[in-house]
Amino acid sequence: MLIAAERVWTGGRLVQGLAVEVTDRVAALRPLGGDTPDLRVALLMPGCTDLQVNGGGGVLFNADPTPEGIAAIAAAHLGLGTAAILPTVITDAPEVIEAAADAVIACHGVPGIAGIHIEGPHIAVERRGTHEARHIRPLDARTMAVLARLRGAGVPVLLTLAPELADPALLRQAAGLGVVISAGHSMADAAQTRAGLADGVGMFTHLYNAMPQMNSRAPGIVAAAILSDAWCGLIADGIHVAPEMLAIAMAARPVADRCFLVSDAMPTVGGPDRFSLYGMEIAVKDGALVNPQGALAGAHVDLLESMRRLIAMTGVPLERAIAMVTDLPRQAMRLPPLQIAPGMAARDLLALDDALGIVRW
């Protein structure tokens, strides 16, 4: 099949006048010339890479930490334009986190499974959100053993924790293993955040959410994150963060292109409108996922839809928005780029129309 696009995302920019020859893999990316394509689309880009996927297709990773659970979650997101995910296990009993690690090790090398995100349990109780308080604990030898086992198997690992509560020596040890350490669900002030950055923190998890907000005399973790050269993940569902705050975070970074989008997706994405977490029913209400107390509990959005909403809410250029769901999260996780080039699997190629809707082919 020959697919022609008005614009193709390649080499970190949008290029006009190109076409892709594809079967089960991309055979060629070349100028269209005088050929008649089988299909014309507005945009060709790699599928999205999402570093924070708690669930999808009715499956919650914490509830089904198995290769089969991962496969179901990944399939739901692939159908919505996300080619690669970090299955994300949130605060839970050590046995659940260990089972999640075993499942991801078993899936290592499976297309679309880019690693694992362990979000908690080493977080601040005050900023736990819907994370279960009884499972929260300091970073310890048991988690360090899980990290070492994952890294020994070659699995990319993202670990979200509260840096102010972690032993600096363990932070440095985890960073030395090649774990990407992200600050989140934290009460850290600006000085504590800078200390964490010096000890190996290189990212911030869903900036603004589950952390104290900055003010004139207490800049806190948010200001320290924005003014750092670390990576910052953002949720752009239009519910978790106001558009103005998204724009501020992107505009104020001292190093350009250090913000990327995450979905924080839950099982309702590509699945039913409710699920169980820690024995509580979490349901979609007015587009938001809330627990029985009305607090947010993850997001009911996929990453491609997040890109659309970011553009609509902030007016960010298409080029930047594409990078924030493709190249930049991969750079943040030290993953090789996913590029439209000969050999690329057809599953990873995303064709979009003028409204940035998926074109099936």
Rank of each mutant, 00 (worst) to 15 (best):
126 E>H: 10
80 L>E: 02
68 E>T: 14
117 H>M: 12
71 A>H: 06
80 L>R: 15
48 C>H: 05
118 I>L: 14
60 L>E: 06
57 G>R: 05
70 I>M: 05
80 L>A: 14
68 E>I: 10
103 A>C: 01
111 P>W: 12
103 A>R: 08
87 P>G: 07
131 H>G: 09
126 E>R: 14
128 R>S: 13
70 I>L: 13
99 A>W: 03
72 A>M: 05
122 H>P: 02
93 A>V: 12
70 I>Q: 07
80 L>M: 14
79 G>D: 08
102 D>P: 02
88 T>L: 05
93 A>D: 15
115 G>Q: 02
95 E>L: 02
129 G>Y: 00
120 G>A: 12
94 P>M: 08
119 E>Q: 07
55 G>T: 06
109 G>D: 10
84 A>M: 07
108 H>M: 10
115 G>L: 02
114 A>G: 09
97 I>T: 14
67 P>I: 11
51 L>K: 09
82 T>L: 12
92 D>F: 00
111 P>T: 07
66 T>F: 10
120 G>I: 09
48 C>M: 15
85 I>R: 06
68 E>L: 14
53 V>W: 07
54 N>M: 11
68 E>F: 03
93 A>L: 13
101 A>G: 09
105 I>Q: 00
91 T>G: 00
86 L>M: 13
66 T>G: 03
90 I>T: 06
130 T>M: 14
88 T>V: 10
100 A>L: 01
132 E>I: 04
66 T>I: 04
120 G>Q: 07
95 E>V: 10
116 I>Y: 05
133 A>L: 06
120 G>M: 04
132 E>F: 11
104 V>T: 08
119 E>S: 06
129 G>W: 10
133 A>Y: 03
69 G>C: 11
96 V>H: 01
127 R>C: 10
110 V>C: 13
74 A>T: 12
67 P>M: 12
60 L>Q: 08
109 G>A: 12
128 R>C: 11
118 I>F: 09
132 E>P: 00
124 A>I: 05
83 A>H: 03
90 I>F: 00
107 C>M: 15
110 V>Y: 05
77 H>S: 11
103 A>L: 00
98 E>L: 00
68 E>A: 15
100 A>Q: 02
85 I>Q: 07
69 G>Y: 09
88 T>W: 01
104 V>A: 03
107 C>F: 04
64 D>Y: 11
67 P>S: 11
66 T>E: 05
118 I>R: 02
116 I>Q: 03
115 G>E: 08
62 N>K: 08
82 T>Y: 03
120 G>P: 09
120 G>K: 04
95 E>M: 10
74 A>L: 15
123 I>T: 04
130 T>D: 08
80 L>V: 09
75 A>W: 10
84 A>V: 04
60 L>D: 13
124 A>E: 00
58 G>E: 07
134 R>Q: 15
62 N>I: 09
132 E>K: 13
48 C>G: 14
